[in-house]
Design a protein around this nucleic acid. Structure first.
Length: 235
DNA sequence: AACCAGGACGTGA
DNA sequence: TCACGTCATGGT
């Protein structure tokens, strides 16, 4: 089993090369090959975030991207940037209607505006301290995936991020069951990989890339780099 | 023109 | 626990 988790990673890495997550506004133009308007990817550079506002930007992005495509999130982030609202104190001061207007392109703007207000409060009280996973999970609007995205990409803590793409790909590979829980799937990675932040960072990003390119709802198995190690019966 | 996107919450069983 | 409805915009 361990070999297959690692082998999958190696195949994806060889196919797509380093992804440069998490995308940040400050990295605009670094990797113009990626989709979206920000192009805020920074391949082979795992030093981000570089300050509290960049860290908060990742947290905001993690919340805004809930069940939402990244290009839509980018529009919202750019609107927030214009308002200089990628800062917890500014978010707290901003009127809720203004906040909703700014993040409207990301969808669910009523819920997400509330989520950002609540998170900004929490973030402000942290005063730079790294939050515990259980702390994050008590926040309204932060579930397991958002918590792990924040821990991994904003705080460089080794928590593997499980999303719909991960479930789809690893179910098809035959490495997990269709009904496996978030915790079970996360355990699969935690137990079979070195607890290394850079690998967790890259692996999740590669999973997303692969799901977008090949392992879509309707998969393109013929040209898939995981074809030889996949259990999926592609017709 | 339906379908779905880097989920989480509230509810009822 | 767990299945299900709800939330909303924008790209394909």
């Amino acid at each position: 089993m361990k070999n297959r988790i690692l082998q999958t990673y190696k195949n994806l890495y060889a196919e797509y090369s380093p992804q440069g997550w998490w995308p940040l506004l400050s990295c605009k133009g670094v990797n113009p090959t990626k989709t979206g308007s920000i192009n805020g990817y920074h391949p082979n550079n795992y030093s981000y975030p570089h300050n509290d506002d960049e860290r908060l930007e990742i947290c905001i992005g993690a919340i805004l991207t809930q069940n939402t495509s990244w290009p839509n999130v980018e529009k919202a982030l750019l609107n927030l940037q214009k308002l200089k609202a990628i800062n917890q104190k500014k978010i707290l001061k901003l009127k809720i209607e203004k906040l909703k207007e700014a993040i409207r392109p990301a969808g669910y703007f009523n819920q997400k505006a509330k989520k950002l207000k609540i998170f900004a409060e929490f973030y402000n009280e942290l005063k730079g301290r790294t939050p515990l996973r259980d702390e994050l999970l008590t926040i309204w609007g932060v579930g397991p995936e958002t918590a792990d995205s924040i821990l991994l990409y904003a705080y460089n803590e080794p928590f593997f991020v499980i999303d719909a793409y991960t479930k789809r790909i690893f179910t098809r590979l035959g490495l997990t069951g269709i009904n496996s829980s978030y915790a079970e799937l996360q355990n699969l990675f935690h137990k079979n990989l070195k607890r290394d932040t850079k690998i967790f960072n890259e692996y999740h990003a590669l999973i997303v890339e692969h799901a977008k390119n090949k392992c879509q709802n309707k998969p393109f198995c013929k040209s898939c780099c995981l074809k030889k190690i996949c259990a999926f019966d592609c017709v």
